[in-house]
């Protein structure tokens, strides 16, 4: 009974903290940062499907994020299509490209697939920069229409915060229900052993391609939200570097867990800013911090607090090469 009460109290406290963030933040710069971290949470949750659950590396997430952002931006600016129609289209457009990247995953694994996703990301960024007649080129797309909800236009950073929070909660709920479905189990089975998954009746083609499409869909939705919120986008945001950041968010937070990507995305958005007082050394310090985390908690931050430490133990064993990797050849 006491434990139950305590759990409710913690939950209420956490909700209160989350809801009071815009009020607590000292200025609009930090409010903007909080909003950005929410958008990154959605991308990280998406990447978690492909990396955390299905076990494939994707360095194409910034490209999917960009495809979503450009879809909403170009539909809004050049075709005057409402945000509410453009947003789902952003998700769908990104997931179509996700299917495209998912197909090589049927034949490529490990480093080779990672290379393919890097190549894809670079091509997408090149197109954004150089296909000027379609994408507005390197100068980017400006004057992206904002979001209005039944006559009410979202304008302040605080309003955006609550709006984005809704999408984050929705993404977490979708992740939770997928994790506890047959599909979620199929993802994990593919991650653990593909041959055994196939001999258990799991369709590898469908599972892998769907996982890529789903992770791209999340990134595309996040991109659409990002474009509408910032009103201006340019190709340099959607770089390979950004893909690495997304990947690090999932890894540091705890891949294959539901809350890991959430925590990773928030930390990796705020920590660099908090280190800015270090002036030119701040990125170096940030880098060292990440290396230390990888060495001492390879299983990710959330797994340190996991009630049942088994999964953390297994991930640690795998990441630190204390177990033989499963035979991939037979």
């Amino acid at each position: 009974m006491n434990k139950k009460v305590l759990r409710y109290l913690v939950f209420i406290l956490l909700a209160a903290v989350i809801l009071s963030i815009p009020g607590v933040m000292p200025n609009n710069y930090y409010r903007g940062l909080a909003n950005l971290s929410l958008i990154y949470v959605i991308v990280a949750l998406g990447l978690n499907f492909i990396y955390g659950y299905t076990g494939y590396i994707s360095f194409a997430q910034a490209a999917f994020f960009g495809i979503g952002a450009y879809t909403t931006a170009l539909l809004g600016v050049d075709h005057h299509i409402s945000f509410w129609l453009a947003l789902p289209l952003s998700g769908i457009m990104a997931s179509l490209f996700g299917v495209l990247i998912g197909i090589p995953s049927l034949k490529l694994t490990g480093h080779y697939l990672a290379m393919a996703t890097i190549g894809f990301g670079i091509i997408v960024q090149m197109l954004m920069q150089n296909w000027t007649s379609f994408t507005h080129g390197a100068t980017g797309v400006g004057n992206i229409p904002g979001i209005s909800l039944g006559g009410f236009t979202i304008s302040s950073a605080s309003q955006y915060y609550y709006f984005l929070l809704f999408f984050v909660v929705l993404s977490i709920l979708v992740t939770w229900s997928i994790e506890h479905s047959n599909l979620g189990r199929s993802f994990k089975a593919v991650r653990e052993d593909e041959i055994a998954a196939a001999t258990s009746g799991i369709n590898l083609t469908f599972t892998k391609v769907f996982s890529f499409a789903l992770s791209a869909f999340f990134a595309g939705i996040a991109g659409g939200l990002y474009a509408s919120m910032s009103a201006y986008i340019s190709p340099d945001t959607f770089s390979f570097d950004q893909s690495i950041v997304f990947f690090t968010m999932v890894l540091i937070g705890g891949a294959g867990t539901m809350l890991g990507p959430v925590i990773g995305a928030i930390l990796l958005t705020f920590v660099p800013e908090l280190l800015r007082f270090m002036k030119e050394y701040y990125m170096a310090l940030f880098g060292i911090g990440i290396v230390l985390i990888m060495i001492f908690i390879p299983q990710g931050i959330v797994n340190v607090f996991a009630k049942d430490g088994q999964f953390a133990e297994w991930i640690t064993a795998k990441r630190t090469a204390r177990v033989e990797s499963p035979q991939k050849d037979l």
Binding site: S200, G256, F311, W314
Partner: peptide, 18 residues
């Protein structure tokens, strides 16, 4: 070729996929 990172129960559950 069991699924090493999943519980015994989950392994069995996946067996019923078909």
């Amino acid at each position: 070729r069991v699924f090493p990172g999943l519980t015994v129960y989950e392994n069995l559950e996946i067996g019923a996929t078909s």
